Computed example of a mutant assay.
Amino acid sequence: MSNSGLPFDDIRALLAHLPPLDEEAAAAIRARDAELTKPPGSLGRLEALTVWLGSVQAKALPTASRPLVAVFAGNHGVTAQGVSPYPASVTAAMVANFAANGAAINQICAQLGLGLKVFELALEIPTADITAEPAMDEAGCAATIAFGMEAIHGTDLLALGEMGIGNTTVAAAVYAALYGGEVAQWVGRGTGVDEAGYARKVAAVGAALALHRDHLGDPLEVLRRLGGREVAAMVGAILAARIERIPVILDGYVVCAAAAVLHALDPAALDHCVAGHRSAEGAHGEVLRRLGKEPLLDLGLRLGEGTGAALAAGIVRTALACHTGMATFAEAGVADKA
């Protein structure tokens, strides 16, 4: 991880100058779509996905030839509260499994022709226990955001994923801080806690909110006090992708916690993002509703690793292939009007 970072004020300044979606590119894509050999609107959301790609990239002929699944892995001090049935050492073991091509995400990426990069975020030094102190100091949180910003170069379609024992607990804390309501509505089963474990998880989130309650009006403070390094890095990745005009596919419950921080700062900050799927974890469906994102898939997934986003990347690339590869009525010699 880089030791350099951006002050929080600089992050806010970047958000104030994000490039808008390109309406000229969108109009050009719609015009071509109207000439393709199909009834108007017959490809449904596939057509809208191509318009979205072009408007983010500012290209009348968008690309998705260098797709990347970026998985960020972090460890969490809150696991000391018994919020997961697995020890923190599983995070490093799963990262090794990714490197050995042994995980579900490896198989999906290989099948769909997607690149995969896994970023370890100081796994040997978990963030602080959020029930006792802030997860990160401002400098460390900002440095991790900066790391995420630097990690996503060289792609034209980014799917985000994560790995980290305890990270559904910190994600639930982020949502509860941003959205309010009963703590239990945001807490899910994660990797499969039993009833006692679930109760400990709810209690940990409640204790963290109580401890930090005087500082939760600022979404960046919510991130540093209640989040994790992988969440902070994904905030940076989403932000950098917008600046570099890279379309982003969000994965599930934990990835969307990063998106929720940016959305709380500026709802337009997620205009370059689509939701890959609706996770079975926790209140992910409610999170997506608040973010204004309709998921592409709903397969009951709750694995993480970017699996849902990667599967959705296959749909996005297929949508683009239809748009760029189909013949127009004129090219095919087919009459498009009676």
Rank of each mutant, 00 (worst) to 15 (best):
A151F: 03
T168W: 13
A96I: 00
E138D: 14
T144V: 10
D137R: 09
T127N: 12
A146Y: 11
A110W: 02
Q81V: 00
L114K: 03
I165H: 03
P87F: 15
H153Y: 13
G181T: 09
P87R: 12
E133F: 04
G166P: 06
Q185D: 12
M94L: 12
A135Q: 07
I105S: 03
G166K: 06
F119N: 08
A143S: 04
T79K: 07
V183L: 09
Y86I: 01
D129W: 07
G161K: 02
E150C: 10
A132S: 13
L160M: 04
N106F: 10
D137C: 14
V118H: 01
F119H: 15
Q81D: 13
E120V: 00
V183E: 06
A135W: 08
I145S: 04
S89R: 15
M149T: 12
G181R: 08
I165N: 01
A128P: 08
A142F: 02
E124L: 09
A104K: 11
A146K: 10
T169P: 01
A104T: 15
E133W: 01
A93F: 00
T144S: 04
D129H: 01
T155C: 04
Y175G: 09
A104N: 15
Q111R: 12
P87D: 14
N101D: 15
P87H: 14
A135I: 03
L160T: 04
I130P: 02
M94P: 03
E182G: 14
M136K: 11
V174K: 06
E124I: 06
T127H: 04
I130K: 02
G148H: 03
E182V: 01
G181P: 11
S84A: 14
Q107F: 05
Q111W: 02
I130W: 03
I130M: 10
T168C: 10
A146N: 10
F147A: 14
P126H: 11
L160F: 06
T155K: 02
S89F: 13
A128W: 00
G113A: 02
P134H: 07
A92L: 13
L121H: 06
F98Q: 07
Q107L: 12
V187W: 05
P134Y: 00
P126M: 11
I165F: 04
G166W: 01
A177G: 08
G77K: 09
I145D: 04
A176T: 10
L178P: 07
E138G: 09
S89L: 11
A172V: 05
K117D: 06
Y175L: 03
A100L: 14
G180V: 13
G140C: 06
A139Q: 13
I108V: 13
A99H: 13
V118Q: 01
L114F: 01
M163Y: 05
T79S: 11
A88G: 15
I130V: 09
H76F: 11
Y179Q: 10
G102P: 05
L160C: 07
A93G: 10
T144P: 05
E133D: 13
D156T: 03
A176L: 07
L112C: 04
E150L: 12
Q107P: 00
F147P: 00
V187P: 05
G113R: 01
T79M: 07
A172Y: 07
L178I: 08
I152P: 03
D156H: 06
N106W: 09
I130F: 04
A122I: 11
V183W: 02
R189L: 13
P134W: 04
N167Q: 11
T168Y: 06
G180L: 12
A99T: 02
A96K: 10
A128N: 14
L158Y: 03
